[in-house]
Design a protein around this nucleic acid. Sequence first.
DNA 1: CTCACTACTGTACATTTCTACAGTATAGAA
DNA 2: TTCTATACTGTAGAAATGTACAGTAGTGAG
Lengths: 217, 217
Amino acid sequence: MDPLTRRQAEILDYIRRQIADQGLPPTRAEIVAAFGFRSLTAADDHLRALARKQAIELLPGASRGIRVLAIEAPPAANEGVPLVGRVAAGAPILAEESIEDWYTLDRKLFSAAPDFLLRVQGLSMRDAGILPGDLLAVQRVATARNGEIVVARMGDEVTVKRFERIGALVRLLPANPDYAPIRIDLAQQELIIEGRAVGLLRSGPLGNTPTGLPFAA
Amino acid sequence: MDPLTRRQAEILDYIRRQIADQGLPPTRAEIVAAFGFRSLTAADDHLRALARKQAIELLPGASRGIRVLAIEAPPAANEGVPLVGRVAAGAPILAEESIEDWYTLDRKLFSAAPDFLLRVQGLSMRDAGILPGDLLAVQRVATARNGEIVVARMGDEVTVKRFERIGALVRLLPANPDYAPIRIDLAQQELIIEGRAVGLLRSGPLGNTPTGLPFAA
DNA sequence: CTCACTACTGTACATTTCTACAGTATAGAA
DNA sequence: TTCTATACTGTAGAAATGTACAGTAGTGAG
């Protein structure tokens, strides 16, 4: 989307507010009234500019035929946290296409405000009580401290492990004896810390062990 | 809201779909086209009926001036859920003095709406990924099905276990070999099911094993 | 300088849209 | 039975709305 001018952004914002408040996009006349213009064409010009810049779509002939296309990250006011499902290879972890849903979470729930939720895959953190299908609440941090459970990325793979660093040697420790620790020499390999775990959410009826919960008994 | 006729419900549904799909409420003419009417008044009559029954609001003079009022499942109606800490002996589980806090939870998070949160104590459900300090989201139900994880009460003690019933014999199974199953003969002992687990919340920085998380490694 | 874009005023007109009025037919309640 | 509500057809007019055309001014790029 081309950058909007200040005035165009104001118009777009007004359109958004109208849709949210009134349930209807505005007419040209309503825009004129709201901004104190004295000519319908002023409003129409702005709409055409916004349409040309792909911020809105104009439906020819239809009254109030304005469709807002530009979406900023969190759906308005909704202080939501995105749920990241499968992370696409090569894409940033918060790429729009990997966001499955948005959740509103009570801030009191977590010690630190999470930036996103990640759906856990695999059993490697089983003994830390982190099971497949769980939603891990993750706070974006660039560096981790020893002992923290982190979301790390090596190449295209995103993994959840306990972080341990001694000098330039990082070990990503699973919490399951069936899995082997991952060793990374920072001098040779790149390791991106996507964030650290600050909470966990598990949904659905517990207890039916559909994912094959491990019972030691 | 007065009950809608079948036809009125169809019209209302069409209006909803138009708003969702097109971003705009329909005009009378569009309703006429969608339903194959041959007169504008047919659409207008339906709108007036819907407005009279409080299903929609009509904005006089405004094109597409239809506002849908009837809301079925309140989309993100976050109701508060109490957190139950230590349950007082003899008191009902939701007694005011045992409620530590209230949390607003996104309804989408859980398959069934939880009625309260219970702070987990002890390691007896460790291998089901339920650890001390976790908040168990519980739906109040009087009866449980085999395999479900339930909150049960025997006398003054509240416990979280997997439920299994064969005839009059109930077994409350821990998920930890260090703990023994509890056997109850319903003919002799009373067992109160306080609810079933529908989700889990874990807060605080994970990984520092402050609660002595069990590592099999 | 010219050119393209922004940001407006002002006028005009065709279409879209709402709304009122006059009917027809059916069904259930009082 | 009468009354009221539903569910439509058909017509007409007024108001709301979109859209085209003709301008004025300012700004920044080339």
